[in-house]
Structure formats: C-alpha cells, structure tokens
Amino acid sequence: MTPHAAHVLEDLRSRLRPAAVARVGGFRPPEDPTTSWFCRAVGLPGETVPQWQGEPMFPLLQVRVSELPVVPEALAGIALLVLFLNRHEYPFDRPHGEGWLIREYTRLEGLVPLQADSGPFRPFPVAWNRVDDDAPGWEDAWELVDLGPVNDDEAASNAFFNAFSRYGGTKFGGYPTEIQHGVGLQDYVFQVASEEKVGWMWADNGRGYFFRTPSGDWRWACQFY
C-alpha cells in the first residue's frame, strides 16, 4: 500500500461515527408503551392513526429518543417519534405526509397506545446497542476524503472494504449504509433496514433512509438489491 493511500485511510478512520444499532426482540417486552417498538405506537389522547388515500397507515417504528445511546443532533428536543407508512405502496419520491409520516412528541407524559393494526407485520420491542466505529460506504466516503489514491491501490481498496465496520441494520446516527449508490450525508438521521423478525422488507431486502433539516422538515430515500 502506498503511503498516500494509507494516509487517506487513516484520515477516513478518524471520521468514524458512533451509532445506536437496533436489537429486535429477544427480551421480555416492557410494560411501558412509550418504549421503542416495531409496529406499535402511542399518541396523544384522541389522536388517531394517520390516513393516506382514505385508509389508515400503520406504525413501522416507534423510537423513544432517551433510549438511544447515540442521539443525532437533529433529534434535540424530541422525546419520541413514530414512523408511519401506508399499506399498499412504497412511497418512493413522495414528500413527507404523502404515503409516509413521522410524528414527533416533545414529552412522553400523557401519551397512550394507539389502536393501530400492523397487518401482516409482527410487533417486536427494540433495544439499542452503541457502536463507535461506523464507516461510510464507497460513494458517500468521497464526501469526506479523496479516495483517488485508494482507488488506484489494490491493497488500499481491499482495506477500505474489509478493514472498516459498516452496520447495515436499523440504526440512528453513524452513516447510511448504501446499497446501489451513495445515499448522501447531509441531514441524515437514521435508517430502517428490512427486518426479518418483523416481516418487513423494503422491496428486495432494501433500506429506508430518513433525513431531517435544521428547520425540522423530513425527507426519505430508499435503496434495495
């Protein structure tokens, strides 16, 4: 490996990020409904499940922010959020509120379970594990460092793909785990993976990526195999 390529990899290693990685099920479900869950949700008294084209959506993921060992800056002031999706189509290229919706709550007090039908998907509680070495994929890494010397060096290229950790499951923080191409790092907050236990899949074993601007606007993207 050339010294230049080695220096680039060391620069990239200095930019690794912490992340909160989901562990789905495998433990006794908590009694508190305001904890993190796949396919269960809470809301304010009198609040109903959001609608899309005249039909109720379902809660894919509820997250209690205080449970996250790594909290993205974009979630400052948010105590709990719920990601809802419609039942009939992946809302590719649709803006927030059209086929998908994230509700935010600044307090846990007063929240009550929503009567939401998860359909064929199986509810599971979620616990969170901290990692401190999440690395970006090939295309997103170019936003951080010039990978030209790595691209020209076989040993360095192998090290890029084999000597760094990339966590492809549901996670908050860290870097988005790309599948087809770069996801983009600006405003990235979390990703939701295809989760076998839950029975949820984005198209062909894909991932959904969620971004929140400093003004509080959400957008999303999806990649799959």
Score class of each variant (00 low, 15 high):
Leu85Ala: 01
Pro72Leu: 05
Leu108Cys: 08
Leu80Met: 00
Leu83Val: 12
Ser14Ile: 03
Gly54Glu: 07
Pro120Phe: 05
Leu60Asp: 01
Gly119Ser: 13
Pro91Trp: 10
Glu109Arg: 15
Val71Gln: 15
Leu9Arg: 08
His7Met: 11
Leu114Trp: 01
Thr106Arg: 15
Leu12Pro: 07
Gly25Pro: 00
Leu16Gly: 06
Pro69Ala: 05
His96Gly: 01
Ala76Cys: 11
Phe84Met: 12
Thr106Gln: 15
Val21His: 08
Gly110Leu: 03
Leu9Glu: 09
Ala22Lys: 07
Gly26Glu: 06
Pro29Ser: 08
Gln51Val: 06
Ala6Arg: 14
Gln51Ala: 10
Leu111Met: 08
Pro95Val: 09
His88Thr: 12
Arg94Asn: 10
Phe27Lys: 04
Pro120Glu: 07
Leu80Arg: 00
Phe58Cys: 00
Thr48Leu: 13
Leu85Phe: 03
Val24Trp: 09
Ala20Met: 02
Leu83Trp: 09
Pro91His: 10
Gly119Asp: 06
Glu47Asp: 05
Ala6Cys: 02
Arg15Pro: 02
Asp93Arg: 14
Pro50Leu: 05
Gly46Ala: 06
Leu75Ala: 01
Gly26Trp: 01
Gln115Asn: 13
Ile102Ala: 09
Pro3Gln: 13
Thr34His: 04
Ala22Val: 14
Leu108Asp: 10
Gln53Glu: 14
Pro56Ala: 08
Leu61Lys: 09
Ala22Ile: 14
Val71Ile: 15
Met57Lys: 06
Ala20Trp: 03
Pro18Ser: 12
Pro120Cys: 04
Gln115Phe: 00
Leu111Phe: 08
Arg87Pro: 06
Arg122Gln: 11
Thr35Ile: 00
Pro91Gly: 07
Asp93Glu: 11
Val42Lys: 09
Glu73Trp: 04
Asp93Ser: 13
Ala74Arg: 12
Leu81Glu: 11
Phe121Leu: 14
Leu16Cys: 12
Gln53Cys: 10
Arg94Gln: 15
Ala5Gly: 11
Leu75Phe: 02
Val65Asp: 07
Arg28Ala: 15
Val63Ser: 02
Glu10Met: 11
Gly43Asp: 09
Gln62Leu: 02
Asp11Val: 03
Pro59His: 10
Leu61Asn: 03
Glu89Thr: 14
Val112Tyr: 02
Trp52Thr: 01
Leu12Ile: 09
Arg40Thr: 00
Gln53Met: 15
Asp11Cys: 07
Arg28Asp: 13
Ala79Cys: 10
Trp100Lys: 01
Trp100Tyr: 11
Leu44Ala: 13
